[in-house]
Design a protein around this nucleic acid. Structure first.
Length: 564
RNA sequence: UGGGGCGUCGCCAAGCGGUAAGGCACAGGGUUUUGAUCCCUGCAUGCGGAGGUUCGAAUCCUCCCGCCCCAGCCA
């Protein structure tokens, strides 16, 4: 995998690591971690973090752990734990024997909390949530000390032990750090360290605990216990860094990892927040977490993206601290680049129009040889059946057109890809005036060579009517119609920006016969149409279903739009 | 003057005091039995703005402007 990937560009985190290595920090180790909360499926923003963390470990001969940040059992479950592991593996990374859960450390975390209490640096607070908010002050006004802040160490120890023992109800008490209730940094105004949660069954620890540690307490300790050297997270945790450091500075623990923040990925025409993705799934706006329109790793995989193209994308967008909104074109370019070199070519007609070659024998049939790739001979050839009746795409015929249009017109000639030059002799219409069939003639001298004395500019794809495989094809477009779906008018909702045409299902497509035994995981270029792959969920149905991964670049469509 | 960040081409992004990399997009041209691919060419006298320091500033200093994050017993 890694030897196929292009070299990763430098960025500020690599510079920090280089400096650390040069200064002899961390005994020359580089040890990162990817720490998802198992409360949803991974999306391409997580992929950015995965490629960063695991990629750094690879490049510096270091290690990267997979650690589930499972301190809030309320929203978490094993389905997510499993899908996350599958997605990280699919992206090409291996945590070896280093799969951890923050919940592995619940006992140690508890002991560290006791250490803080004993040192007079944490206290049990009886304020309820609303009171605490009030006491904490606002962004511009300092907070007021909790009346419980001055409890004795003995009382705090006793109360905390009873919290653990289950003597108090949810919300009745919390453990708080005693830092600075007037700090300009809200995170330092005596943050909550532990809360009480009865009646939830934790996916890893079951009912062993009824108190659960908060992220800000758990994360630095988990990192330190695992010997993490560089703890990479997104920008919104910048304000938490002083708290991260405070925790490690006030307990007895041998390591103190460095937290470094980078900006999260934003992609045009989609959403990345787990809350919104969850809503799309739960309210049925999409088929599920792996809906091919979703920016989830599972969705991209089902859509047909390769993991290499996603890694390449993550390298192209870079790592910085600036807010960003990346164009879809970057992702599309990555998958096209991959598939152009790797996907075998096939022919598939999406909007069939019947075409009869009148001077071709009624029961005639011949098998024509076609390259699987225009510039990679090692991909070999395939045989394509040709016969008197074929299908071409409706978009490849016009009764009349200007010279820019180089496909088939009445009385005109066109090359059938991998076959003969044909001429349109007659157009058949139904009562409504719709074109229903084309009657043509073919030039038998044009197989594998150009006709003499005239030029045929256009080439169109086709499928033999008798031999073609009937298939369903799903064409995907952007999930939202706005570059930034969060931009809504007063009182609006991001789902208002959903693109009603994000999925178009074509049920009467004809694919060349060799596609009859295509299997899941194979990707093809349907020439002149785009890249396609068999849908993994519909693979057992009687009719094959193909997903369009991405279109080909289309300069003709651009011209047409400009009114040429 | 709550605190913390960020502003370099349409979108990403290098640059770290010596005279603006690269990718995507876009525009021209060439090759082509895919209007694809590929190959050429073009695309910031300019780095949020204004001053200043310097022989020299995107890089240093000052002031100003804009955008993002923080008041969960979420992560």
């Amino acid at each position: 995998m890694s030897d196929q990937d292009k070299s990763t560009p430098s960025h500020f985190i690599r510079q920090i690591i280089d400096h650390d290595l040069q200064a002899g920090k961390n005994e020359g180790r580089v040890h990162t971690r990817f720490p998802p909360e198992p409360n949803g499926y991974l999306h391409i923003g997580h992929a950015k973090s995965i490629v960063l963390n695991f990629g750094l470990a690879q490049d510096y001969q270091g290690k990267c752990n997979l650690r589930f940040d499972d301190t809030n059992p309320h929203k978490e479950n094993v389905e997510f734990v499993e899908s996350i592991q599958q997605d990280v593996r699919w992206l090409g990374y291996d945590w070896e024997d280093r799969l951890f859960y923050a919940s592995d450390y619940f006992q140690q975390l508890y002991d560290f909390a006791v250490e803080l209490i004993t040192a007079g640096k944490a206290y049990v607070c009886d304020l309820d949530a609303e009171q605490m908010r009030e006491y904490r002050g606002t962004l511009k006004e300092p907070g007021r000390e909790s009346p419980f802040r001055s409890r004795s160490v003995e009382e705090n120890l006793d109360l905390f032990a009873r919290m653990k023992a289950g003597e108090f109800a949810d919300g009745e008490r919390v453990l708080r750090a005693k830092i600075d209730i007037a700090s300009p940094n809200m995170n330092l105004r005596d943050p909550t360290l532990y809360r009480i949660r009865h009646g939830v069954i934790h996916h890893q620890t079951g009912e062993a605990w009824c108190i659960y540690p908060m992220y800000d307490f758990t994360h630095p300790i988990s990192d330190a216990l695992e010997g993490i050297t560089h703890s990479l997270c997104t920008l919104e945790f910048e304000d938490h860094r002083p708290l991260y450091d405070w925790v490690l500075d006030n307990i007895t623990i041998p390591y103190h990892p460095q937290q470094i923040e980078f900006s999260r990925l934003n992609l045009e025409y989609t959403v990345m927040s787990k809350r919104k993705l969850t809503q799309l799934v739960e309210e049925g706006f999409v088929e599920g977490w792996d809906d091919p329109r979703m920016p989830t790793v599972a969705g991209l995989r089902r859509r047909g993206f390769t993991s290499g193209s996603i890694r390449e994308f993550c390298h192209r967008i870079g790592i910085t601290k600036s807010d960003n909104l990346v164009e879809m074109g970057v992702l599309e370019s990555c998958i096209r680049e991959d598939l152009d070199t790797h996907a075998p070519r096939r022919m598939g007609v999406l909007h069939p129009l019947k075409l009869v070659i009148e001077n071709y024998p009624e029961d005639g049939e011949e098998w024509l040889s076609a390259s699987n790739h225009p510039k990679n001979e090692s991909m070999g050839q395939r045989e394509i059946p040709f016969s008197r009746e074929i299908y071409i795409d409706q978009a490849d015929f016009r009764e009349e057109a200007n010279k820019k249009y180089k496909r088939l017109v009445s009385g005109g000639e066109v090359r059938l890809r991998n076959a003969y030059v044909i001429k349109c002799e007659e157009v058949l219409k139904n009562n409504q005036g719709d074109i229903v069939e084309l009657r043509c003639s073919y030039d038998p001298e044009t197989l594998g060579k150009n006709p003499e004395g005239r030029k045929v500019r256009g080439v169109i794809h086709w499928v033999s009517a008798r031999h073609g495989v009937k298939a369903e094809v799903r064409l995907y477009d952007r999930l939202f119609s706005q570059p930034n779906p969060d931009k809504v008018t007063e009182g609006g909702h991001f789902t208002d920006n959903l693109n009603p045409d994000s999925l178009r299902t074509l049920t009467d497509c004809y694919l060349e016969s060799s596609l009859g035994d295509a299997s899941v995981g194979e990707r093809y270029q349907f020439e002149r149409e785009g890249y396609f792959t068999m849908d993994s969920r519909e693979a057992s149905g009687e009719k094959p279903v193909f997903n369009r991964i991405v279109t080909l670049r289309d300069s003709w469509a651009k011209l047409e739009k400009q009114g040429v």
